[in-house]
């Protein structure tokens, strides 16, 4: 298998690596369920969670994953960090890397923030915990583990409904579907559907009801109001729920074994009705549970066997041009 040094996104991974992480994740589920939830696997490793965007589940999940494997975990969020005082992303990254952590987990609103930092921080493994509308690999690995435990994903049709245009989860699923052998249907109003998204090999729908027959999983996305700008108009919440919300009627129209997933946080009454969210067909809390196991697998894979990897040479120096671009982004 190709060794994993960083986890940027599904786009850099191959099937073998994904299956390896799923296998590893599956064996961590048990540790999270037993009374003493601690293993010494990552003793002596330091993990820094650097979150420039708000997050509860992903950050908690990474924190628990590290702590349950005995690593030392430090959380930094943008509201308390020096970025508030005007420090650039690169300087924050280099400062933290100088403290010699093994893994830096980063969430940032700019797509590609992790790859950018990795070019300059030679010795630290970087995990993408969501970058802009680009990728969210650990969420997709989590979903695949949940699907595997619920009967497998190969040949299944996953129908992703909601704000596709701003969704890193949808994007990562499109990439993973090709690698792992499942189909993706996308459902969104025209204003929230990226142009020419069919090129990823998915089916595109604008009416939710048309996409329901033949779906094995209905994957609801949160309306990301923080990313909506004037040029992608959004109707009222009530109207959205009418047209694209998953209610009991729509769930009844789906095939018998059709399952419901949501990457969280959910807005009940917007993209998903309360009775559906609490139904036996919803795997939403399974996803949360498996999220911890998958993140344990990712951290273990990145920390393990690093003596063989060979460290990269001196890290890149920043050009004036790049510094200018960075300044304009932040």
């Amino acid at each position: 298998m190709r060794p994993l040094q960083h986890l940027f996104g599904i786009a850099d991974m191959d099937r073998e690596q994904i299956e390896y992480l799923l296998n590893l994740g599956e064996s961590f589920i048990d540790i999270n369920r037993r009374p003493l939830k601690k293993a010494p696997t990552l003793r002596g490793k330091t993990i820094i969670n650097l979150f420039f965007e708000n997050s509860t589940r992903t950050r908690t999940s990474f924190e628990l994953a590290g702590k349950r494997l005995s690593a030392d975990v430090i959380n930094i969020s943008a509201s308390t960090s020096a970025t508030k005082k005007g420090e650039s992303l690169l300087d924050t990254g280099q400062t933290l890397a100088a403290m010699q952590p093994h893994v830096l987990v980063i969430r940032h609103s700019v797509s590609g923030a992790c790859e950018f930092l990795a070019d300059y921080l030679g010795h630290t493994s970087i995990v993408n915990a969501g970058d802009g509308a680009h990728e969210h690999p650990t969420q997709i690995l989590t979903d695949l583990l949940t699907l595997r435990c619920a009967g497998g994903y190969i040949g299944k049709t996953v129908t992703i409904v909601g704000d596709i245009a701003h969704s890193r989860v949808a994007r990562s699923h499109l990439l993973a579907a090709r690698l792992m052998g499942y189909q993706v249907r996308l459902v969104a109003p025209k204003t929230l559907m990226p142009a020419e998204v069919e090129r990823f090999g998915c089916e595109v729908f604008h009416e939710f009801d048309d996409a329901i027959p033949g779906s094995d999983i209905l994957y609801m996305l949160r309306m990301q109001t923080e990313r909506l700008t004037d040029n992608c108009s959004f109707p009222s919440v009530r109207e959205y729920h009418e047209a694209y919300g998953l209610n009991r009627k729509r769930l009844q129209a789906a095939a018998e074994g059709c399952l419901v997933m949501h990457p969280g946080p959910m807005n009940r009454g917007v993209e998903i009705a309360t009775d559906v969210a609490d139904s036996a067909r919803a795997l939403i809390l399974n996803q949360v549970e498996h999220g911890v196991a998958i993140r344990m697998a990712v951290l273990t894979a990145l920390c393990g066997g690093q003596q063989h990897l060979g460290r990269p040479g001196p890290s890149k120096k920043m050009t004036m041009e790049a510094m200018h671009v960075q300044g304009s982004l932040l």
């Binding site: 064996s27 293993a39 696997t41 894979a301």
Partner: peptide, 23 residues
């Protein structure tokens, strides 16, 4: 028992790709 996560040689050999569940 699977002892993969309790080994003392994670740094040199990396995680075992064939971890069996402890039961």
């Amino acid at each position: 028992l699977d002892i993969s996560f309790y080994r003392d040689d994670l740094d040199t050999i990396g995680p075992n790709p064939e971890v069996r569940p402890s039961d």
